[in-house]
Amino acid sequence: MREQAPLLNGPDAAAIERLAWDALRRIPAPFARYLSDIVMVVEEFADDETLAHFGMTDPYQLTGLYRGLPIGEKSSFDVAPNPDEIHLYRQPLIAEWQQTRVDFEKLITHVVVHEVGHHFGLSDDDMHALEDAAG
């Protein structure tokens, strides 16, 4: 078990979730119609198992995560698939915000669009174009 990281002050989970939903609503068509079933989850940090999966030891390394099958891998034959989820990690987001001084809403939009990009299997360049459109 990792040592407890110090907690930072900043927007609470409810505020982050509101910003994340706002960012998701700004995603343009044709992407938007495939995002209605996304579940948004805001947690303080990623759990140890998730960090270990990505080879991370610092809980501040991960600000967001998409969990689910990318659109291109889904099938109508899937039996009761788990819902697609976007996880946002509050403490790492606050730390990045405090370190970079970027606008917090823009940071949340950046992370949400990046995770949506994973949902669609997009390249980094495509994610940047989508972020510009959702900005």
Rank of each mutant, 00 (worst) to 15 (best):
R2E: 01
E49W: 00
I38M: 09
A15E: 05
F120D: 09
D124R: 12
I71L: 07
R25E: 13
A14H: 07
Y34W: 12
L62T: 01
R25N: 10
P11C: 01
L65C: 04
K74V: 10
D103F: 09
D125A: 13
W97D: 01
G117A: 14
A95K: 14
K106Q: 15
Y89A: 03
V42P: 00
A46G: 05
G64D: 04
R90E: 13
M40T: 02
H53E: 08
D12F: 01
A20F: 13
L69K: 07
R2H: 04
P83G: 01
A134W: 07
P92T: 05
V116Y: 14
L24C: 08
H118A: 07
E17M: 05
R90Q: 15
E43P: 01
I38G: 01
N82W: 05
T63D: 08
Q61E: 08
R26H: 09
W97M: 06
V39Q: 11
V116K: 12
S123Y: 14
S76M: 12
A133R: 14
V42Q: 01
F77H: 13
A129I: 06
P6C: 04
R67N: 08
S76Q: 10
V113Q: 13
E17W: 03
H114Y: 09
N9Q: 13
D132T: 09
Y34I: 00
D124I: 10
D58I: 04
V41E: 12
P92S: 10
M127S: 09
R33I: 04
G72L: 03
E85P: 02
N82Y: 15
H53T: 10
D12Y: 01
S76Y: 04
M1R: 08
Q91G: 02
P28L: 00
G72Q: 06
P92C: 05
L62C: 11
L7Y: 03
Y34A: 11
V111A: 04
L24E: 04
H110V: 08
H53R: 11
E85V: 12
D48T: 03
V113F: 15
A129Y: 13
F120L: 09
D84G: 09
L130R: 07
P83S: 05
I86P: 01
Q91R: 06
S123K: 12
V111H: 15
L130W: 10
F77V: 11
E131P: 00
Y89D: 05
I86Q: 00
E49L: 07
I94T: 11
F31C: 03
P59S: 02
V112S: 14
F45A: 02
F54E: 02
E131L: 11
H53K: 14
E105V: 15
E17T: 14
E115A: 05
T63F: 03
T63C: 15
A95H: 11
D126L: 09
A32Q: 15
Q61R: 14
D132K: 14
A133T: 04
A80S: 13
A134P: 06
A46W: 02
A95D: 15
G135E: 13
D22M: 12
R26P: 01
L51T: 00
I94S: 09
P83W: 05
D37M: 04
E44R: 14
T109C: 13
G135L: 11
